[in-house]
Write a protein that binds this DNA or RNA. Structure first.
Lengths: 212, 212
DNA sequence: GTCCAAATACCCCAAAAGGGGTATAGATTC
DNA sequence: GAATCTATACCCCTTTTGGGGTATTTGGAC
């Protein structure tokens, strides 16, 4: 019997059995265009499963016993160029993402994604496009009027808080914003004064609490 | 209408939306005795949800944004003694398990558990018994957290990461741990090297991703 | 036309962070 | 027994941070 071409066949590789099972059930809804053809729970089982099942897409965690998803991705791209890879991970560690993108994976989803995002991602990937979790890019909306007033932070100060949180040092920020270092220092001092804090760690805690 | 006593009502608290959704679908099979009455995605939402939904069991991750599962467990046991708590976590840290057991949770499952184990656990808990993942005992060295091995961070290094994240400066940490400042500096340098980062902001990002 | 907040930029200084080494004792692993 | 890992602690040095000021310009608000 020939495989039904309407369906994208999917292999799930995740050592968290509950998550693995959960993914399968999430992809098995009425009208779903996906068919989970295999589930494995450790790195060593991925390549044999691809051999045997020839899935269109491998949905894989980075963190697998025996072999990690990055090495596996490299091998899959090399040996099964037609198989598309979607990484699904709790890490938004940019180093991982960059490395994997360079290797040539088709998608990267965070485990904090929703079912809708999962389906959208797999749809795009099965149509030959790529999908990378929007949360990976630190984009900030402009809806914080509430707490700006509360802490009396100016727009410029907010901008600088976000950059500090991203790991930029004062000179980096100055270059980025075309400002003198001293100006950025002044802003930092004012921010610390307004928030009643004394170092970066506390600033980042604040930023995280505010969802910056 | 009275609640159907045949069902155990369940509140799911996990920030990984896909996992959260997956759990719900896994518990919604034919003949299931469980009914998922609520799903929340951050620590702050747990207590209000219990107030509103009065679930029999809270199925909760340890790592939640805003508030962690350990603090929450303490509050739930104190304020809602009839609500049973089952922790579902990727960590098999004995320290966490011990602490939670002392607080009085009813169960602890690893995310690597199977659907059968999940159901068995919830059955036992809803019948007033406890259930702790069998893998917790066999744990010790091998079952150590994946990410520790991945990043090869030593226990001392982890300890210091947590203190840095809390906003302590090197001299503070040295005093706290009865170490020379230079020792703490060395640990910092080694941590930065291992994680391939260059400043506190990046370190805190990492720590937050790991739920440290 | 004055007042004020915001953004800009400089002065001073001390403390902390960051980056390059080396070294030694103790435990564990091979 | 050798190799490795961990924790400890020191050397060197530069850069960044944090904290105290002052000051100018600009654009609105009153």
């Amino acid at each position: 019997m020939l495989p039904d071409v309407r369906f994208s066949t999917i292999l799930i590789a995740d050592d968290h059995q509950l998550f693995n099972e959960g993914l399968r059930t999430l992809l098995t809804f009425d009208g779903s265009l996906f068919r989970v053809v295999g589930q494995v729970y450790q790195g060593n089982d991925v390549i044999p499963a691809i051999h045997k099942l020839n899935p269109a897409i491998v949905l894989m965690d980075i963190n697998l016993p025996n072999r990690n998803g990055i090495d596996l991705s490299r091998q899959i791209v090399r040996e099964f160029p037609s198989v598309r890879i979607v990484i699904i991970s709790m890490y938004s560690y940019q180093k991982f993402v960059d490395e994997l993108q360079e290797i040539g994976i088709s998608g990267y989803l965070l485990k904090s994604a929703s079912q809708e995002e999962l389906v959208r991602c797999l749809n795009q990937v099965s149509n030959g496009m790529t999908y990378f979790d929007p949360k990976l890019k630190a984009a900030s909306p402009h809806q914080e009027d509430e707490f700006i007033r509360r802490f009396k932070l100016s727009p410029r100060e907010l901008e600088i808080i976000v950059l500090i949180k991203q790991g930029l040092a004062t000179p980096d920020i100055a270059r980025r914003l075309f400002l003198a270092e001293d100006t950025v220092k002044t802003h930092r001092k004012n921010i610390y004064y307004k928030l009643d804090i004394t170092n970066v760690a506390e600033l980042i805690q604040f930023a995280n609490e505010q969802g910056l």
